[in-house]
């Protein structure tokens, strides 16, 4: 979706302001939100791309004015409501009042913690041969899906070069909508800064994205 989360190349957000000796969490509730998202995801309530999609779907003014973990909380609430793991009645009461919905992998227990400390596995067996190889010139398609995608706007329509092949991976564009893993080849594609930002751009800049095969066409 063409949301405000797709920030690459936008102007006006100001300087980057690193915080010296930044704590891991600024408020205790942030750590609870992180842990709830990890636990509910691991228990099978949703996958990582669905959780991203719900954050991206927050109203633009909310997205831009909320802290990182507030976005996580709002996205989590919306996702759990949409998928029926909680109801409006529960939220209104601040307690569980309607029956629970069974979780795909069962309740999340202390014994499951190790599982969330390792990143998920996204590599899959290839259903077909790769269309592109390192060195190929490709164009990022000019597409504007209204749902979740990992093709940022700033590369769409632009020509780059395939640099690496990462094998076949779960396809975010379908898995985010519960439409299946639909594995796709994944490539690092490098773009010249001037191709992306025009002839006045710094000629020493190169930018790469990791692009799923359906995002690309030969150029």
């Amino acid at each position: 979706m063409n949301g405000v989360h797709d920030m690459g190349g936008m102007d006006g957000f100001g300087k980057v302001e690193p915080e010296p000796n930044e704590p891991m969490f600024h408020e205790e509730w942030e750590s609870r939100v992180l842990a709830m998202v990890r636990a509910m995801g691991a228990a099978g309530a949703f996958n990582i791309d669905a959780s991203r999609f719900y954050r991206e779907s927050l109203p633009p003014h909310v997205y831009l004015s909320s802290s990182y973990y507030k976005k996580w909380l709002l996205g989590l609430e919306d996702l759990l409501l949409a998928k029926g793991y909680i109801g409006k009645e529960d939220v209104a009461a601040g307690h569980a009042v309607i029956p629970a919905k069974p979780l795909k992998r069962g309740p999340f227990a202390v014994a499951d913690v190790e599982r969330v400390m390792a990143r998920g596995k996204f590599g899959r067996t290839a259903p077909a041969a790769a269309k592109f190889k390192a060195g190929d010139r490709v164009r990022a398609k000019n597409i504007h899906p209204a749902t979740h995608t990992r093709l940022p706007r700033y590369v769409r329509g632009h020509v780059g070069v395939v640099e690496r092949d990462h094998g076949c991976h779960v396809y975010p564009d379908t898995v985010a909508n519960d439409a299946g893993e639909n594995p796709q080849w994944l490539y690092t594609v490098v773009f010249d800064g001037r191709e992306l930002w025009g002839p006045d751009a710094d000629p020493t800049i190169k930018v790469s994205i990791d692009a799923f095969e359906p995002y690309l066409e030969p150029a």
Partner: peptide, 13 residues
């Protein structure tokens, strides 16, 4: 509140 709801439903410990 969200943590209460989710733990009361038995989704996590």
């Amino acid at each position: 509140a969200l943590e209460s709801i989710l733990s009361e439903k038995g989704y996590f410990d």
